[in-house]
């Protein structure tokens, strides 16, 4: 897009994907708020009693009517087209479910119910292709967690201490295994009670349609505190059972990020911005990368690119534009200066 001699950088779509991702997260979250309101509106329509509604209820009715009347004639029936949440939803009769819902139901029900299993097809295919993208692009809990993460950065800037601990990432695979075992033992899908996106979907519905919160809200608040006080994005990184399952499914994803060693200058901005605490600067993406593209957006030399490949490239050593290279240090071991920079980021 830049004109010659304008000094601007060339327009690269991949550098703007992160904004698109925020848009996607916001739209999903907004839908989860809108759907319960539409449901309440539908029940008012079905009851044929507009005059009996309270002023608040009339306001809700009028707003929802204004939003939907350009699209539907018979709201009580037509608005049934979109129901549910990211855990399991229906769009014009097409049902889609979270892979964890399917795995958890199989564990709890001690058997496979095929009409339900097929509802995972599209999410599963997308995960095999794009890896843990759900965590970065769709998950309604991520929307809140990432805002919290930004809030923590603000607190840090103001000199207030926030949690920066690093735990063992494999913990979440334990949570997944334990959740499935508990579901199998209890005969009820208990893993749904500790999975934030499922909780968010439900609790928004409870809050809007019933004016109260369930047990899940307390759990979610605890995870927020954990993120703020113990580890940045701690729940997603170390504890989320769904994240664990998505990571396993996305291990051999086809679309992944790669560092172009020739244009990398070892600035470590990518490592600093990575919500999942990965190591893009040293080619450390792995199965946990959710293709969120925050690192791509922040890279000053556009060294991070998408590739179609089922494994990461082997560590390529320091970036060719990096300081160490210019100083003739060929060692792959990170220098103390870069370590310090990374810790500060």
């Amino acid at each position: 897009m830049s004109k010659p001699n304008s000094g601007g950088r060339r327009f690269l779509l991949r550098r703007h994907l992160n904004k698109l991702r925020w848009l996607s997260l916001a739209v999903v979250f907004a839908m989860l708020v809108l759907l319960p309101f539409l449901h309440v509106y539908q029940t008012y329509v079905a009851a044929h009693g507009y005059d009996l509604l309270s002023p608040d209820e009339k306001l809700l009715y009028d707003v929802m009517e204004a939003i939907t009347s350009p699209f539907v004639k018979e709201p009580a029936e037509a608005l049934d087209a979109i129901k549910g949440n990211t855990w399991s939803g229906t769009i014009w009769g097409f049902k889609m479910s979270d892979p964890l819902a399917v795995v958890g139901q199989i564990a709890a029900g001690h058997g496979v119910h095929w009409p339900f299993v097929v509802t995972v097809a599209v999410p599963l295919l997308a995960t095999l292709l794009l890896g843990r993208f759900f965590c970065g692009w769709i998950c309604p809990a991520t929307f809140i967690y990432e805002l919290t993460s930004n809030f923590a950065a603000l607190l840090k800037w103001a000199g207030i201490d926030v949690g920066r601990r690093r735990l063992d990432r494999r913990l979440k695979y334990g949570v997944l295994a334990f959740g499935l075992i508990a579901s199998a033992a209890s005969g009820s899908i208990l893993v749904a009670a500790v999975y934030p996106p499922a909780i968010i979907g439900r609790e928004l519905y409870y809050a809007i349609a019933w004016g109260g919160l369930g047990a899940g809200a307390a759990f979610f608040a605890a995870t927020l505190l954990f993120d703020l006080l113990v580890a940045r994005r701690g729940f997603c990184r170390y504890l989320c059972p769904g994240g664990a399952l998505y990571s396993l499914l996305g291990r051999y994803r086809a679309v992944r990020l790669r560092r172009t060693v020739e244009t990398c200058n070892d600035c470590a901005k990518c490592n600093g911005v990575c919500e999942f605490g990965l190591d893009p600067m040293r080619d450390g993406f792995g199965q946990e990368c959710n293709n969120c593209t925050a690192c791509v957006a922040v890279c000053p030399t556009d060294a991070l690119v998408f590739t179609i490949k089922v494994v990461d490239v082997a560590p390529q050593g320091p970036g060719h534009l990096g300081r160490r290279y210019r100083h003739g240090e060929a060692s792959a071991a990170p220098s103390p200066a870069i370590e310090a920079k990374e810790a500060a980021a």
């Binding site: 399991s88 939803g89 479910s97 119910h113 899908i189 499922a198 519905y205």
Partner: peptide
């Protein structure tokens, strides 16, 4: 209980 996934739909 073995079937219900608590989706709220």
């Amino acid at each position: 209980l073995g079937r219900c996934i608590h989706c709220g739909q």
